[in-house]
Amino acid sequence: MRGVSVRVVPRLFRPVARAMPWWTFLAAAGLGLAIVTVPAATAVTLTGEDLVGLLRVAAVCGALGVGFLLDDPAARSIATVPTPRPVRYAARAGVILPAAAVWWALVLAVTVAGAEDGIGATLPLGGVTVEAAALGGVALAVAAVRLRGRPDSGGLLAFPVLLGLVMAARLLPDRMALFVPPDDTEWARTHERWAVLLVVAVAVSTWASQEPARRWTAVARRRRSLVGHRRS
C-alpha cells in the first residue's frame, strides 16, 4: 500500500460509522445483553457454570450481529477509489472493535452484578472474553471472505456458518473441546485453542480484505518466475 494517503483514514471513521448497517448488530447485541440480565432481573440463583453458559450465548449473539457490519450497499460505487480495500476495512474495524468492546464490557458488568455474592468474582472473565473475541473474529472472517470480489451480505453467510461451527464445537471429542466448564482442568489448554482460532480468524480477515488484483500480480510473478526458470 505504498503511496496511499494515510491522511484519509481518520477522516473515514465518521462517514463509515454512519454508513454501517447497525440495526442487525444492535438487535443481536441487545438480545445478548437481555440474556445476561435474566439473573439480575429474576430471583433465579445461577452457578458460575450457568453464568459462563449465559455469557457464551451472549457472545454468540454478538458475533452473529458483528458478521453484518462489513456489509456495504455502496461497495460497487467505491470499488475503484484510490483508497484500497484493506484501508477501508481497517476503518470499519476501527469502528467495530470499540463498539463491540463497549458492548462486551457491559455484558460482563451486568453478569457480574447479577451474580450471587462471591460468584461474580470467581467467573473466568478473561477466558470467556477470548472466546467472545474468537467468535466475533470468525464471523468477520467469514463475512470478509464472502465479500471478497462481490458486493453482497457477508452476514448472510457468517450467520449460518457461525451457528454451524458452534453446534459442531459441541460435538467435538473431549481432547478437542472448545466449550468446557470453568472448573475443568482443560480450561487453560482449551483457551489456547480459542486464541489460535482468533489468530486464524484475524489472518483470514486480513487475507480476504486484500484487493483482488493481488491474484493477478501473483499470477504474473509466478509466470515470470516460470519463464525465468525455463530460460535459465
Binding site: V8, R11, L12, P15, R18, A19, D72, P73, A74, A75, R76, S77, I78, V81, P82, T83, R88, P151
Partner: peptide
Amino acid sequence: PGFHPGFSAFEFVDYVAIL
C-alpha cells in the same frame, strides 16, 4: 451503483471524495 440511503447526495459524494 449502490448508495447509503441515509446519506444526503452531498454527504455520499463527500464520502467518496474522502476515499
